[in-house]
Design a protein around this nucleic acid. Structure first.
Lengths: 152, 152
DNA sequence: CTCTCTGCAAAATGTTTGCACACTC
DNA sequence: GAGTGTGCAAACATTTTGCAGAGAG
């Protein structure tokens, strides 16, 4: 067993078991650089682990979101997408650029200094003005990618 | 008839008719400061216009999104929410702060200068780096509102 | 008279739940 | 054994679609 992953400890310390299904799902999420839907994960897993059903995937993802290991995104395309949260991912914190036509999602993490500063300040301002405790933020840009752009 | 609304002209000039159902739906959207789901609109309309069905509302909203009159939001709560786009709304451009517990959505449009500047620059950068044509952006902060905060 | 728009009922889609069994501690 | 975790099938909620009729130009 490879309890070496940070998320393994997190799960166990939260009183959950590190089952095969959960390991497999977390492995997929760890080794992809994409944003996967429950079904994406199911299809990836299924050839090697036909025993793991869609239900388990949904339940595991919900668990992982609750535990803060995974982030759930809604890009408005009818199905939720999941990715490891910054703390458990090799990827840096990033925002998303989404093509309205082909639905391609591009990560964008080359923030200029201003961006970090903006977020920090915005969260502070929201705290002062609305007394919200901000936990996270989603910044998404929608547009047309070069491939989908009409020629000319 | 009150063809006076900006959206009336927009619809007609795009080759669509300004029907009663469409007018009613647009009136609701014009006169609310909330983010309405298809069902919200249906329930608001129904007492006065029992003839307008949910299907029509969905079809109208889709039409309005295509035409750019309405923006569709997905806050991850299972149903899409709609509001007039800046161009057709009395409201200023704004971002959203969402309570994770009670799902309350607060608009937030008191941008400090930095925010506008950040968006302008980000869009420019995305254009240069990924050759995306950016059409709009969604900035959402998630957290816990004061009412939902555990006391103490 | 044509073409858009609409309601109804049915379908489709993504997600959740009930239940009985399997597995771990 | 007690309690967690799971698959299957069924339930669910939201949204979409087929079709035939109503209404506008």
């Amino acid at each position: 067993m490879k309890h070496c992953h940070k998320w393994g400890q997190k799960l166990v310390s939260n009183g959950f078991r590190l089952t095969v299904a959960r390991e497999v799902i977390l492995d997929i999420l760890t080794n992809t650089d994409q944003h996967l839907s429950a079904e994406d994960i199911y299809l990836t897993i299924h050839p090697h682990n036909p025993g793991i059903g869609l239900t388990t995937i949904y339940r595991t993802l919900e668990l992982l979101v609750q535990t803060g290991i995974v982030l759930k995104f809604d890009f408005g395309h009818g199905r939720a997408k999941y990715e490891l949260s910054e703390e458990y991912s090799y990827k840096k914190h990033h925002h998303h650029v989404i093509c309205k036509k082909c639905r391609r999602i591009v990560d964008y993490s080359d923030f200029f200094e201003q961006e970090q500063e903006f977020i920090r300040k915005a969260e502070e301002e929201l705290k002062n003005k609305f007394h919200f405790t901000i936990e996270n933020h989603f910044i998404q840009f929608y547009g047309i990618c070069p491939e989908c752009k009409p020629p000319g």
